[in-house]
Amino acid sequence: MTTPADLRLLAAARQGDVAGVRAALAEGARVEARDAELRSPLLLASLGDHVAAARALVEAGADVNARDARHDSPWLVTGVTGSVAMMRVLLAADPAPDLTLRNRFGGISLIPASERGHVAYVQALLRETAVDVDHVNDLGWTALLEAVILGDGGRAHQKVVALLLAAGADRELADGQGTTALEHAERRGFAEIAALLREA
């Protein structure tokens, strides 16, 4: 049962109120309290990119892999927000984030980050973790495919594609219909990305 202290902790985490987080924990709030959507305080802090609040929760032992009703976790949502600072706070947790944890689409954090053109995040994630650059989600898409299929072909997505290729992404992996990232880029008129994908 959710206690008043739990509710104060959830509210403080959602608002990024570090003092409120610490006060609620001192009052006996459970670090893994959940709201109506099963979101933990750390997930709420991660969604709002409240880095200091997240750090306080991690120090209190919050689970970086705790899932909500939508199968999101604090770690997974960093791929959506693109927050490098939050990514690093969560990487320092013990236990560490599960890099293989999948969202409701079967994707790991790298995939939504690539889709959204979060260049700094993709770069840091590839450099600082052993994330699987060729993970395939439930749609049959890798991060490379998603960056082309759902991206806008602009500078950010061009940089993401270049980073993925430099990290060893397999440009020959096709989607469920057998269409490669290069073919998608050509169909969408993304000349710069197509050029990157043609390079040996």
Score class of each variant (00 low, 15 high):
Met1Cys: 13
Met1Asp: 14
Thr3Val: 05
Leu7Lys: 15
Arg8His: 11
Leu9Phe: 03
Leu9Pro: 00
Leu9Arg: 01
Ala13Lys: 01
Gln15Glu: 15
Asp17Glu: 09
Val18Asn: 02
Ala19Gly: 12
Val21Gly: 00
Val21His: 00
Ala23Val: 11
Ala23Pro: 03
Leu25Val: 10
Glu27Lys: 05
Ala29Tyr: 01
Glu32Trp: 11
Glu32Gln: 14
Asp35His: 04
Asp35Gln: 04
Ala36Thr: 15
Glu37Asn: 13
Leu38Pro: 00
Ser40Met: 06
Ser46Lys: 08
Ser46Ile: 10
Asp49Glu: 15
Asp49Ile: 14
Val51Ser: 00
Ala52Tyr: 00
Ala53Lys: 00
Arg55Val: 03
Ala60Trp: 04
Gly61Asp: 06
Gly61Thr: 08
Ala62Met: 01
Asp68Glu: 06
Ala69Gly: 07
Pro74Tyr: 10
Leu76His: 03
Leu76Cys: 09
Val80Phe: 12
Gly82His: 02
Ser83Leu: 02
Met87Ser: 08
Met87Ile: 09
Arg88Phe: 05
Val89Asp: 00
Ala92Arg: 11
Ala92Thr: 13
Ala93Asn: 04
Pro97Lys: 05
Pro97Cys: 11
Asp98Gln: 10
Leu101Ser: 09
Leu101Trp: 02
Phe105His: 13
Gly106Asp: 05
Ile111Ser: 01
Pro112Trp: 01
Ser114Cys: 09
Ser114Asp: 08
Glu115Gln: 10
Arg116Leu: 14
Val119Cys: 10
Tyr121Leu: 14
Val122Gln: 01
Ala124Val: 05
Leu125Asp: 05
Ala130Phe: 04
Val131Thr: 11
Asp132Glu: 13
Asp134Gln: 12
Val136Pro: 04
Val136Trp: 09
Asp138Asn: 14
Leu139Trp: 14
Gly140Thr: 09
Trp141Asp: 10
Leu150Glu: 11
Gly151Ser: 09
Gly153Glu: 04
Gly153Ala: 06
Gly154Glu: 13
Lys159Ile: 02
Val161Tyr: 02
Leu163Tyr: 02
Leu164Val: 08
Ala167Cys: 10
Ala169Pro: 07
Arg171Pro: 06
Arg171Trp: 07
Leu173Ala: 10
Ala174Trp: 06
Asp175Tyr: 13
Gly176Trp: 04
Gln177His: 14
Gly178Thr: 12
Thr180Ile: 11
Glu183Gln: 15
Gly189Phe: 12
Ile193Phe: 08
Ala194Gln: 02
Ala195Val: 03
Leu197Glu: 01
Glu199Trp: 04
Ala200Tyr: 00
